[in-house]
Design a protein around this nucleic acid. Structure first.
Lengths: 103, 103
DNA sequence: TAACTATATCACTTATTAGTGAGTTATTGC
DNA sequence: GCAATAACTCACTAATAAGTGATATAGTTA
C-alpha cells in the first residue's frame, strides 16, 4: 500500500499518528528535558520504543536533540518551533482525556 | 507492559492513538455515511483495517453503527456525542497538516 | 438461473512493532 | 582496578498489525 497524503489530516497522522509520539511531545511542552527524565515521565514506554520515538521525532524536525560532551552522557531533548506548533492540539488532547475519562 | 493511564493524554492515546481512527472520525464530522462511502474517503486503508477500525470505534462508543435490513446490505456510521466531542481536535489536526505541509 | 449488489468475515501469510537482556562508552569515586 | 553512571545500541524473540484472496448473504434484475 502506497503512502499518499489525500488530505491534510492524513499528512498529520503520518507524522504523529502513533501512541507514543504525542506523549513525548506533550511532556516537552514546558521545556527541554534530559533523556532519562523524559522517559520516566512516560511509564509504560520501553527503552527501545523511547529511543525509536525520539529518533523519529528528531528526523521529522519536531524535537531537537542536544548532546553534551560529558561523562556519563547527557542528552537533552526539546521541541523545535515545528514541534511547538502542536502545543494547542496536544493540550486539547490531554484536556479531552481528562474530561472524557470521568464519564 | 501494563496499560495504566498515567495522565489524561495517555488515556486519549489509548482510545484514538492510531493512524486510522482519527481519519475515520474526521470524515464523519459532516454527518453519517454508508460504510462503502466512508471507506472510499480513506484511500490506503484496506478492507480489513477499515472493518477493524470502525469496530474498535464502535466498541468505545465514538461512532454508532446503524444497520438497515435491506438487500444488498446498508450500514451507516455516524459519530456519537462522545465522538463529536473530538470535533475541534480533529479539525485542528487537519488544519495543522495543511499549514505544516507547505513549508 | 446466473450475475450483481454492499457489507462484511475468514483463513492464511507477511510486515511491523514491541519487549528483553546484554554490551558499549569514558570518566569519577571508592 | 572495579563499580557506578546515562544514554544508548544490538541481537533475538514475541506480539500485534496489516494485506490478500476466498466466501457468505439474499433479494433484484437480466
Amino acid at each position: 500500500m502506497t503512502k499518499k497524503n489525500v488530505c491534510p489530516l492524513d499528512y498529520t497522522m503520518n507524522l504523529i499518528g502513533t501512541k507514543w509520539k504525542p506523549l513525548v511531545l506533550f511532556h516537552l511542552l514546558e521545556g527541554g528535558l534530559r533523556s532519562g527524565t523524559l522517559q520516566k515521565k512516560i511509564p509504560g514506554i520501553s527503552n527501545k520504543m523511547f529511543t525509536q520515538t525520539v529518533r523519529d521525532l528528531e528526523k521529522d524536525g519536531l524535537i531537537f536533540r542536544k548532546v553534551f560532551p560529558v561523562v556519563p552522557p547527557k542528552v537533552e531533548y526539546s521541541l523545535t518551533d515545528r514541534g511547538m506548533s502542536l502545543k494547542d492540539i496536544l493540550i486539547s488532547l490531554d484536556k479531552w482525556g481528562s474530561e472524557d475519562c470521568q464519564k
